[in-house]
Simulated assay, not measured.
Amino acid sequence: MNQIHEADRITETIIKMVHCAKILGLPIIANTQYKKGLGPYAASLEGLMDDIIRPDKTEFNGLANSETKELIKALPVAVDTAILVGVETHICIYQTALGLMEHEFMPWVVADGVSSRTIGNHQLGLARLRDAGAVVGPAEMIVYELLAKAGTPQFKEILPHII
């Protein structure tokens, strides 16, 4: 992450999205990318990830990894959307989004929860994702769309994570 443009903001957004997914009861699947060579997750994420399955992969498309693909296939049939956060926008996020579309999932890319080593590659990655048919939007927009209304117990529990 020390090479990623606005890494602190990306990590904060990922933390927000993991908290929200847990509160909403959404399944979470994560990957590490070649942990042996690139290292573990950012330290601030590790505590949140203890109960989340995280296959290590060398593939850029998460669904090209057999363990990740099996986790995706095991999701309930009602799950047809995947919310993507992580790095790098123009490589792993882009290729994973395409892989999800090939498996009839709609990828929602959290624009402020993804990045690349350069802002240019990040912006070009987001543009290609939109052109390919992925939904691209900020974390707050996606969370509020999932909540649908204020005043619910879930809204009250998520509120400290989004303000």
Rank of each mutant, 00 (worst) to 15 (best):
M17F: 08
I4S: 04
Q95A: 10
E59G: 00
I23Q: 02
M106N: 07
A42C: 01
L146V: 07
A42S: 03
K22N: 09
T152H: 10
A43G: 08
L63C: 09
P153C: 08
S66E: 15
T152L: 10
L63Q: 03
A74N: 14
I15E: 02
V136F: 02
A139L: 09
L71I: 07
V109P: 03
H122W: 05
D131K: 14
A148M: 14
P76L: 10
K69P: 02
A43R: 14
V114L: 03
L126V: 11
D131L: 12
S66F: 14
R9H: 14
A127I: 13
M1V: 14
A64Y: 05
V135F: 15
A97R: 07
Q154L: 06
K16A: 07
I15P: 01
K156V: 00
V77N: 13
E104Y: 12
I72A: 04
E157I: 07
F60Q: 00
R128V: 07
L26C: 11
H161F: 15
A43H: 13
I142A: 05
R128S: 06
P76R: 13
H5V: 04
L24F: 09
Y144G: 00
E59R: 05
A139T: 04
I14G: 01
I142H: 05
L71G: 01
G151S: 06
K16W: 11
L129M: 12
A150R: 14
I4C: 06
I10S: 01
M101V: 05
R9S: 15
P160C: 08
L45Q: 05
E46N: 02
K22H: 08
V110A: 07
K36V: 07
D56K: 06
A150M: 12
A134G: 11
P160Y: 11
I23T: 12
Y34N: 14
L146E: 06
I162N: 02
A97S: 12
K16I: 11
R117D: 06
G62T: 02
I4N: 03
L75E: 00
V87T: 11
E67G: 00
L26N: 10
H122N: 03
F155K: 04
I158C: 09
S44G: 10
P76S: 12
A21T: 11
Y34D: 13
T96S: 13
P160H: 09
R54F: 11
I91D: 03
V79P: 00
L100T: 08
Q154H: 10
Y34E: 09
M1A: 13
C20F: 03
I28G: 03
W108H: 11
C92Q: 04
N31G: 04
E102D: 15
K69G: 05
I158V: 15
S44T: 08
A30N: 05
Q95F: 15
